[in-house]
Write a protein that binds this DNA or RNA. Structure first.
Lengths: 330, 330
DNA sequence: CTGAAAGCGCTAACAT
DNA sequence: ATGTTAGCGCTTTCAG
């Protein structure tokens, strides 16, 4: 077992409350006693027991983060940024991978609550959150994905300017002479996807593209599935420009197009969404709408910290996106 | 605040110890009281306070996992497998991203220990672990990376058959007519890298390759750096076969080679290591030595659970690898 | 400026 | 079969 506050107190010849005061910098302590305590602490290699502290304080120093797929670079990068910011504020991150499963998400929310986390940041896997979520008073910040139920939560929601991303993609294609367009979206993240789609299709139509030259499809966020689906899709609706709802989908689609002998960007131009670093390394590099994951993580963390500190302001925070031209566009 | 065991006891008209017994299935309880307690628990929406439980039991239900880079698909996939297995055993995973920094690694180890985790699984970022790690009695399992100091720990070490992977890569190149060879390794993971290198170079030499036709270089695990370094390297030592210590490095090297106008696999053949899924999607697909991350995660989890349960057996566990032929080899 | 003591929610002897 | 009670390690009134 590790040492306790009693051992430190004994060694320093003071009471445990004095030790507590010194170590937490709360209340008074003369310089002399302060020094004695510090020395004793170091000699013993004493460290506070966070569990006991949490029990007494009725709160841990943890903040939970739920992401749907940690192996997806976008979420990994977001998680990394959140962790960094939170550590800066003195919190520990409790990272949970929900694997796109509402059931696992629910399990983790319960577990997080049982462990007295101070707040939860959620990139939701589904749309039917546990009712208990609505009852709890723990601060919640929603990021990137917002189901129809979730918006009833008294929380802050953070997302990128998805619609603008769609507009940017459409303009980029138009400028580069594309004629027949496809939007290939992610089935799960309906809100973001419909915004991206909206910006994309409306810009196309307002620039004179006819409805017969535009088509859309929603699939699960998976490179494997995208690679497969895009082939059949091309058979049914040959196109020369495809806007993918995520870079992951873009990666699969690109490979699928290559499989059926299409040249990128000569035959088909392609734009992804997210801006994962990986997109720089494929041949050709993936043109994309970049989200600022670093900023998103920072803002998410700061929002949850604010809520924990009692800030009452709520609402949606919109983050900028930008078009990155790489090899998949002419 | 959430409910306490006292409220349940009151509602069910029993004592708190009875509630505890029923909920933890420990000790006796008649069917009738059991039912009463269950009902009261549900009506109140009561959930055990894990913090209090942990304090009382002198242990949390957490197991810590340290990985150097969660955005690297190999570690993400490993983490995912560990999490799944651990949850199966009833543990919660406390996932920490050390960003290849020994300092952050140390910080997390302290934090994990302060939070009374039951065990720690480490894919180490560096080579000089905190001395406190050696003093603690918390079970430790080391995975994939083992520094010279770390082997003094009384722990289980789990790695792939790295040397065999090198042999496999050499044979694959030889069979496909390669003449001048390069090994491009990861600077951090010295043990695994030197094993891969050893298997590779020794197989080459024993098959008649001369020392002047083999060269090696160690760089940080980063696609960005690999992309850059491989160009200079090729200038100095033109080669027609490159074995990369990780798929991440392979990805960067491949792009770098493409940048200077080389054709893969025509001019240069390439083999990576790890077997990340991403390698299927590049054009051409990355031939690689596949590690079984799923198995590695499972074995790591089971090892830590065993240690927690008091199993005394220690040692190194070797996991199988296999060669996956894709487009970067002829 | 410092110490004594209560109690956070829970489990596990021990008593009944 | 069930209840009483001590105490896990810590913080925080409240006295002194």
């Amino acid at each position: 077992m590790s040492r306790t506050i009693y051992e430190v107190a004994k060694k320093a010849n003071v009471s445990i409350s004095t030790v507590s005061r010194v170590l937490n910098n709360s209340g008074y302590a003369s310089e002399a006693t302060r020094a004695k305590v510090i020395v004793a602490t170091e000699e013993l290699g004493y460290r506070q027991n966070r569990i006991a502290k949490s029990l007494r304080n009725q709160q841990s120093n943890f903040i939970g983060l739920l992401v749907p797929d940690i192996a997806n670079e976008f979420f990994a990068s977001l998680a990394s940024s959140i962790e960094l910011t939170l550590r800066h504020y003195g919190y520990n991150l409790f990272l949970c991978n929900t694997r796109e499963s509402q059931e696992i998400e629910n399990h983790y929310i319960e577990s997080l609550l049982d462990n007295q986390v101070q707040g939860i940041i959620i990139v939701s896997a589904g749309r039917k959150p546990k009712p208990s979520l609505f009852k709890c008073t723990t601060p919640i910040v929603l990021v990137d994905r917002l189901g129809p139920e979730l918006n009833k939560l008294n929380s802050i929601f953070i997302e990128s300017e998805n619609e603008k991303g769609g507009v940017l993609a459409a303009k980029a294609f138009l400028k580069r002479g594309a004629k027949r367009f496809v939007f290939l979206g992610d089935q799960r993240n309906m809100r973001a996807m419909s915004h991206r789609k909206k910006g994309f299709s409306e810009t196309l139509f307002s620039h004179g593209v006819s409805e017969t030259d535009y088509c859309e499809m929603m699939i699960p966020v998976s490179a494997v599935i995208a690679r497969h689906e895009v082939k059949d899709f091309y058979e049914a609706f040959p196109f020369d420009a495809i806007f993918c709802g995520t870079d992951n989908i873009a990666l699969g689609a690109m490979r699928g197009l290559y499989d059926i002998g299409l040249e990128i960007p000569t035959d088909v131009q392609l734009i992804g969404f997210d801006g994962i670093q990986l997109g720089e390394f494929t041949v050709p590099g993936i043109s994309t709408i970049r989200q600022d994951t670093h900023l998103m993580g920072k803002v998410s963390s700061e929002s949850i910290v604010k809520m924990i500190r009692g800030d009452e302001s709520r609402g949606t925070i919109l983050l900028p996106v930008e078009f990155i031209a790489r090899g998949t566009t002419k």
